[in-house]
Design a protein around this nucleic acid. Structure first.
Lengths: 343, 343
DNA sequence: TTGTAAGCGTTATCAC
DNA sequence: GTGATAACGCTTACAA
């Protein structure tokens, strides 16, 4: 028997001598609703799998105005922090029947804007975005115009856009409190991108801990402007060229902490003997560094899962749309050997 | 002036009092070919951006049978090795005008198959796949049926499917040669997934180095069955319960090496004093581990770039399609302090 | 230099 | 229980 090539619901209809309508109904689980006979139903299913019929989602999306895809825009998929979040988003999306469009903005605002338009042209049902930082008009406009957007990690406090992130304030606050409790007073803070809310909140938490403990804070110890390795390296070198260097460093990302470690080893300074350290973002390798790193853990998989859940609620429940979900997940301090008690 | 809502090429045509044909031509850069007047052209461009018209790629894809998307299926986007590759693939794809569908197979063959069908139903123009391992019928079938597939990292030597990977044989060979050259004879090899070609080739290279140096090889030192941390941990514990433990370990992934480090620290063994180590895959943190790790670097960004380039050649040049591109990129040994000369 | 109309593969509506 | 048909938004052959 020569099998007819089936590339279409129409081809399938022809083979089965049924209408495309019926096939479509069966394949979309509406056999009951339209009271399609059990026999027909089975024939359709059998033929569909036999001829390996794959429905065309373009046509479906065009017709239904619904593609079951979501767009994900992050600044760097190779950054383990975002890679972890991306993974949980992929998992969550898939479990709900959605596919993922991935874009890496590289931290470039112009690219981010272009990518949003790209996603719109692909007719994604919604987007999850870790925005690059300062500007949000394009995001707000897209969300207002009806395409659901959920922000992850970074957000904008002055506007009403849903976000899922960590309680960065508390993360820093706890870490610095801990450092102070064991005798540290000169604690440096190496920031990430300065006008990212992530960095802002972490610095605020850092400040708050000083205030709470009524310890005066040397503004010169708040340095840096990027989440990357180079910034960690450079700022550490600068910090230790000061007359009165810090006894501890709070690194606002795991990459910054790697740069710090690199600089310290060049400076022949030992962790924690010469300098204590705490870094944001727990990673598998943190426990195995020269001095196992004390970190601030951020529940990344929950962030990813929640962002998908919330997004899909927005997509599938239009009455939900006016709600603005803002979530900050608690962080937790993982204490290891990178911190020395100097009391 | 009340701006008409423009959601369509037709709306735009109406506003401009032109036909959709003309708009389409201008927007697709065919003004010259159809000798559209400069004035019209400018009006179209102006209106398109003014009304923020985004063409519907579903409709376009449906019509042209070309979506300018490619599917990427990898076993774990949170694994830094694959995250690095994914990043370079995203970059490469975007630079050629393609968007990326991302799927995380979690190393599950059934999922991988489902994902391929999902991608097909989304009408991707081609796929880049890091297959989970043993089975390839579904891949071969898809490729044969006309949808270009390029494998990355893992491949199947017995079939004709394009792949881009590292010269894993040489990577191991060089590493073990180096270890032997500085006096090691009992070198353990902690494998990844046993029937993945990646692992197979690395073990072959490992064996070849022994042979070349006419050193007899203890088969009991070839252990393990997964690229993950747990395997590294478990196998190390087993290796050091032997009467005659190894003096060096070759870890076939960076994750395995983390497990090894963990186990060694529990066993109170020091790297490199008590045990030497080399691991596959250079990562930013490798230089900052307790003992900076000697690694085998794999040119991941080239792997990503090349895989996209080759895939797009297959997509855009049907005569090229019958060629089967197989590339193995040379690795390089990055020597750090995790290895001790015991001569 | 610009326009008309068919068709890409689905599904919803209406009809029987 | 099942089917005919229009429509989703775009591109392109054919007309003018």
């Amino acid at each position: 028997m020569i099998k007819k090539e089936v590339k279409d619901i129409r081809d399938l209809a022809e083979v089965l001598e049924l209408s495309t309508t019926t096939i479509s109904r069966v394949l979309n689980g509406k056999s009951v609703k339209y009271r399609i006979s059990e026999a027909t139903k089975l024939r359709v299913f059998k033929a569909a799998s036999e001829y390996n019929y794959v429905p065309n989602k373009l046509a479906r999306g065009l017709k239904l105005d619904k593609t079951e895809t979501i767009g994900l825009i992050i600044p760097d998929i190779a950054d383990p922090f975002f890679a972890d979040i991306a993974r949980s988003i992929e998992l969550g999306a898939r479990s709900k029947g959605y596919s993922l469009f991935l874009c890496d903005s590289g931290g470039d605002l112009v690219l981010e804007m272009e990518m949003i338009n790209l996603m719109l042209s692909h007719k994604v049902d919604g987007m999850i975005i870790a925005p690059v930082g300062t500007d949000y008009d394009h995001l707000l406009q897209a969300h207002k115009s009806g395409i659901p957007i959920v922000l992850v990690d970074r957000y904008f406090p002055e506007i009403e856009l849903p976000y899922i992130t960590s309680d960065n304030f508390q993360g820093s606050y706890d870490a610095v409190n801990y450092l102070i409790s064991i005798g540290h007073k000169r604690i440096a803070c190496i920031q990430g991108i300065q006008n990212s809310q992530t960095s802002i909140d972490r610095v605020l938490g850092y400040r708050a801990a000083f205030e709470k403990n009524t310890i005066s804070l040397d503004e010169n110890l708040i340095v840096g402007d990027n989440f990357n390795i180079e910034n960690g390296y450079k700022q550490t070198k600068i910090l230790f060229s000061m007359d009165n260097p810090p006894t501890a460093i709070l690194a606002l990302s795991s990459k910054i902490s790697l740069g710090v470690i690199n600089a310290l080893s060049e400076l022949k300074l030992l962790i924690p003997d010469d300098i204590s350290m705490i870094a944001f973002d727990e990673q598998p390798y943190c426990a195995y560094l020269g001095s196992p790193m004390t970190t601030i853990d951020m529940r990344k998989s929950e962030i990813g899962q929640l962002s998908v859940e919330v997004l899909i609620k927005y997509i599938e429940n239009k009455t939900y749309y006016k709600k603005v979900v803002n979530i900050k997940l608690k962080t937790s301090l993982i204490i290891r050997e990178s911190v020395k008690n100097i009391n």
